[in-house]
Design a protein around this nucleic acid. Structure first.
Length: 594
DNA sequence: GGGCCGAGCCAC
DNA sequence: AAACGTGGCTCGGCCC
């Protein structure tokens, strides 16, 4: 078949739509689905076309029609729907037509799973080229959909373009399916496909922010920042030749505090040479300007990254913030979030407490407790680690008592901190050198601590070594749900070869842990969504931050939904971890805090 | 004026 | 400046 000129029928009459649905579509077990619109924001876009593909043919439906006949098909969980970036199609159909597509196979997510770490070419254009050899025209702009949106009339080129997008999904699906089977990625693919509508709903719903409180917060910060900036400029003024007199209203600053180059230069004038102006360096510089600069940066960072900019993201129509969640954003399987990134809102209560539910609603905030360490215990099967979690011991205190050969009661804060640093550092493939710097001890001392640690946790050591080596040898890592992450081969002739290999070893140690944590949270999100969605509850997930899930729920159902969130989080945890208890701390709250 | 990159720093 | 994994945002500084 000529995929660039597929047979298609344009449907603009209601009676014909009903006919086609009954005669052609209802008997299909697989449909390809796509929509065309005049924008990307589901809350404001106009739906123009809905395309339904069956093998070898497409139906291009004018969206001015009543789509009720299609709704039944699209919501039918028995019929598989092939989609490319289905999060968009799902959202557009949900918001504009209250259609909740079920049972989707997403070629974009599938491709991401099949190529994680190797490439990031997931567009329909590249998938078509890769799997069918067809070079699609993707000049979306030139087709002038905005004019079509106004007139309601579509050109032949537009209709053909729309048809191609669905028929091409069948051969891509067929090839990818083989790949998923070969790489044993079917379970994680199913997880991601089930998760996709949940992610769409989270984006559609968005998060509410208390604007006044946010602004009050900013006012305090900016006053503080300006005062600190003034002090720094005064301190440094004597060291600079002032080129211009500060006339009325003129900026008399001697340097731009946001410029690392200029800051470095300023310290040189003070007789202090520093290799970088980063926090780690400045913290060690014994000069009031260094201290002030760190305080300045802290306030400046909060003001710029989390200031008015964030409020500009409030949607004029919904009054809420709708970030973009990329469900396989990180190569480990974690989410990424942007526009704005609500996964990096400062933990400081001044910021987090500005995120609030609608009046009459509550938040349920659920967190996995020490989940990455529990996963490391499961994966390594280290008996000491396993026992600590089974006995609900304070792991870091226990570790310290073993490292320092003392009873637990004698472990002081410093010892516990050191033990904690090792526990966490190991999951990142941390070595003695970096440990010695963080702990402020000699390299030899750090080595001794590590040796002592590994003498107790022998299987942690052997597991870390093993998965690090395997990542290099096999060229990939796996998580407990079977998710994979590939590593690009390094060239032994390359000057950076050793560094590249040790980087892969560290990624190989971290990826099974971080990735399994992502799997777990994703299973929990799907479980929670399914438990909440069927009518009985006025509750919906609105946010997730790696090992945390936030649900917004009508007040009177808060306690009940809290139990559901806890149950589902623990259930998905225990599904993956068989040897370690999984705990989720779940709270009812009026603000986003735990 | 836009694109790109690195520095620096927020989260888990 | 990097040292320890995964991201995104803002800025300065440079290019065209």
């Amino acid at each position: 078949m000529d995929y660039k000129k597929p047979p298609f029928e344009y449907i603009s009459k209601q009676s014909r739509l009903t006919e086609v649905v009954n005669a052609e579509l209802a008997k299909q077990s697989i449909l390809a689905v796509d929509v065309e619109s005049d924008g990307l924001d589901p809350h404001t876009l106009k739906l123009l076309l809905v395309q339904i593909g069956i093998p070898g043919q497409a139906f291009v439906i004018n969206a001015k029609l009543d789509l009720a006949p299609l709704k039944t098909l699209l919501e039918n969980p028995e019929i598989l729907k092939l989609v490319q970036n289905g999060k968009f199609d799902y959202s557009a159909l949900k918001v504009t037509r209250s259609i909740e597509m079920r049972n989707m196979y997403d070629t974009m997510l599938s491709e991401r799973l099949l190529t994680v770490g190797m490439e990031r070419e997931n567009s329909l254009l590249s998938l078509a080229a890769k799997y069918t050899g067809v070079q699609l025209d993707k000049d979306w702009e030139s087709l002038n959909w905005y004019a079509a949106a106004k007139s309601g009339k579509f050109s032949e080129a537009q209709l053909r373009y729309a048809a191609v997008d669905v028929v091409i999904l069948f051969p891509i699906y067929a090839k990818q399916k083989e790949g998923l089977a070969k790489e044993k990625l079917e379970t994680v693919a199913k997880l991601e496909f089930n998760l996709m509508p949940v992610v769409a709903e989270i984006e559609i719903k968005g998060s509410k922010i208390d604007v006044n409180k946010w602004r009050e917060n900013l006012a305090v910060l900016s006053q503080r920042r300006d005062e600190i900036a003034r002090q720094i400029q005064e301190e440094l003024r004597p060291y600079f030749v002032v080129k211009q007199m500060g006339l009325f209203g003129q900026n008399t600053d001697v340097l731009n505090l946001n410029s690392p180059m200029q800051v470095m230069e300023a310290f040189r004038k003070l007789g202090i040479d520093i290799p970088s102006t980063g926090e780690a360096i400045l913290a060690k510089v014994d000069h009031p300007v260094a201290k002030l600069l760190l305080k300045y940066r802290e306030n400046e960072k909060l003001l710029t990254a989390f200031g008015e900019n964030l409020l500009e993201k409030i949607h004029p129509k919904t009054g809420r913030i709708h970030p973009d969640f990329q469900q396989i954003g990180a190569d480990t399987g974690r989410f990424a979030c942007s526009n704005p990134n609500l996964q990096q809102i400062p933990t400081d209560s001044a910021f987090r407490s500005c995120f609030i539910p609608e009046p009459g609603y509550k938040f349920i905030v659920g967190d996995y407790s020490q989940i990455e360490l529990r996963i490391m215990a499961e994966l390594s099967q280290d008996p000491v680690f396993l026992n600590a979690f089974r006995n609900n011991d304070d792991l870091h205190t226990l570790t310290a008592s073993q490292m320092y050969n003392i009873p637990r009661e004698q472990v002081d804060k410093k010892m516990r901190f050191n033990a904690k640093s090792i526990n966490f550092g190991l999951m990142y493939g941390r070595g003695a050198n970096s440990l010695s710097i963080q702990l402020g001890v000699s390299f030899e001392e750090a080595e001794k601590l590590l040796a002592k640690y590994f003498a107790t946790y022998k299987k942690v050591k052997s597991w870390l070594d093993k998965v690090g080596r395997e990542a290099v040898r096999k060229g990939y890592s796996t998580t407990l749900s079977g998710r994979k992450r590939w590593y690009r081969e390094s060239d032994p002739g390359d000057p950076g070869y050793l560094r590249a290999v040790s980087h892969i070893e560290r990624q190989g140690k971290n990826t099974p842990i971080q990735g399994t944590s992502a799997d777990m949270t994703k299973f929990a999100l799907v479980g929670i969504y399914n438990a909440l969605k069927d009518g009985k509850y006025d509750a919906f997930p609105i946010h997730t931050v790696h090992d945390e899930i936030v649900v917004e729920v009508r007040e009177d159902q808060a306690e009940e939904v809290k139990e559901i969130v806890e149950r589902e989080m623990v259930k998905s945890g225990q599904m993956l971890l068989k040897s370690v208890p999984v705990l989720a701390e779940v709270k009812v709250s009026n603000v986003w805090e735990h």
